[in-house]
Design a protein around this nucleic acid. Structure first.
Length: 383
RNA sequence: GUGAGCGUAGCUCAGUUGGUUAGAGUAUCAGGUUGUGGCCCUGAGGGUCAUGGGUUCAAAUCCCAUCGCUCACC
């Protein structure tokens, strides 16, 4: 079993801080995991990821790695860590989300999902057993179960059936996990995923099903798919009340900085989101005083750093004007510098959150930070 | 110099036998993006239709002149 040690707790809220240890080192929580779908955090090399951004764990993707480069290459390489030269922990999403968001042709069956590749249209059949097998070949420290991520809106009857399917698959995931072992000499762990859309009775049933099967950690999935943000907070709050206190809780695919702080406040320990990297590549910069849309003409001759409170490589060396120039000129460096800054901002945010929880002043700090990072955006919108 | 062709948004071009307020792509400006395709989506600004005259109820469209560009031939 994965050991998760809680070392600090907020009294005013459900926020907690702690750490867990894997075969590739310790991860402090709450933590944000940069997304490296295809075995690379886009535009950011491992040296910056490690030394400047101080990422403790990255997320990669079973669906994508299975299609390319394929498990055979990964096995020959000795696993994903060696293949990509990243010796810290890796979590892999099962690919369930991609099967439902990317694949064009897909067919849900009781024992798995049939889909055609978004790369070449070739047909594949993902079962819980197969997805565990692929993640064994990848050698991720934390593997995720195959689930169905419900869309939004999602009518109740659909959600009932989908949640039942996810629960049934969870059993098969667990069996496959127990019947196989790591290929590379270190332990791998398996997280279950709670679904149930926005329906509390389904969330409760799903959580109880998944807890009964028993996993090394528990993810909350199917959120941040278009529902109102207050609904998301409400479901997170409701679900973490059911999940075991001494297990890791992972809110999948979330989110904006303020979403992360609100979810930490409601007892979440782990996050991943494409936003800092994808939006970074699109000139959308997160700062301590709000959003900068880096292509905007107002930065043409703004030689200030992106964020005066940031100590990242980009902020230490380059100006807004230069970054804007790189974006307008479609230079590759723009993507790299922005991704480094945004990831640094996210990792620094959760690092500060850990400190504030230890000091037991997280709730007040959180409100202050959210006010700072969102008030600027409101004033821009009002103008 | 002679002949032919072409001048429509910053750029590349549509625009029917003359018929509402001249369009598109791109660029510019501004929004969006939540278990990743550098993608994509949305909106806005931008035109004395080379210039001047004429025909007509009505001209980017037809006629004349001027200017500019391209090609061919001297």
């Amino acid at each position: 079993m994965l050991k998760f040690s809680i070392s600090g707790k907020e009294k005013k809220s459900k926020a907690r801080t702690g750490y867990f240890e894997t075969g590739h080192g310790i991860v402090e929580t709450p933590i944000f995991m940069p997304v490296g779908t295809q075995g690379t955090v886009k535009a950011v090399n491992q040296s910056y990821l490690d030394n400047d951004i101080k990422a403790q764990i990255v997320l990669s993707n079973t669906y994508h790695l299975y299609l390319r480069p394929g498990t055979e290459v990964l096995e020959k390489a000795g696993g994903l860590h060696k293949f990509i030269n990243w010796q810290k922990p890796i979590l892999t999403d099962s690919g369930g989300y991609q099967v439902f968001s990317l694949a064009e042709l897909r067919k849900l069956k009781p024992d798995g999902v049939e889909f055609s590749s978004h790369l070449d249209g070739s047909r594949h059949f993902f079962t819980p057993e197969k997805v565990i097998g692929i993640q064994r070949s990848i050698g991720s420290d934390i593997m995720m179960v195959l689930d169905e991520c419900t869309p939004y809106p999602c009518d109740y009857d659909y959600a009932v059936n989908s949640t039942e399917l996810t629960s049934n698959w969870a059993v098969l995931n667990k069996e496959a996990f127990e019947n196989t072992k790591s290929d590379y000499g270190y332990e791998q762990y398996l997280f279950g995923i709670v679904q149930g859309s926005i329906y509390k009775d389904l969330r409760e049933k799903s959580a109880k099903d998944i807890i009964n099967i028993g996993f090394d950690g528990y993810a909350v999935g199917g959120l941040a798919v278009g529902e109102p943000v207050d609904t998301m907070y409400d479901i997170v709050d409701f679900t973490t009340d059911i999940l075991p206190e001494d297990s890791l809780r992972y809110l999948m695919g979330v989110g904006r900085p303020e979403n992360i702080l609100e979810a930490i406040d409601r007892g979440i320990d782990m996050f991943d989101c494409v936003m800092p990297t994808r939006n970074g590549r699109n000139a959308y910069l997160f700062t301590s005083t709000g959003i900068l849309s880096m292509r905007n003409a107002q930065y043409k001759d703004d030689f200030r750093t992106i964020d005066e409170e940031c100590g990242c490589y980009t902020c230490r060396n380059y100006s807004r004007a230069y970054l804007r120039h790189l974006f307008i000129a479609k230079e590759i460096l723009a993507l790299e510098l922005s991704s480094i800054h945004n990831l640094h901002f996210y990792l620094n945010l959760v690092r500060e959150a850990r400190e504030k929880i230890k000091e037991e002043i997280f709730s007040d700090w959180k409100n202050e930070i959210i006010n700072k990072i969102t008030s600027n955006n409101k004033s821009i919108m009002e103008e």
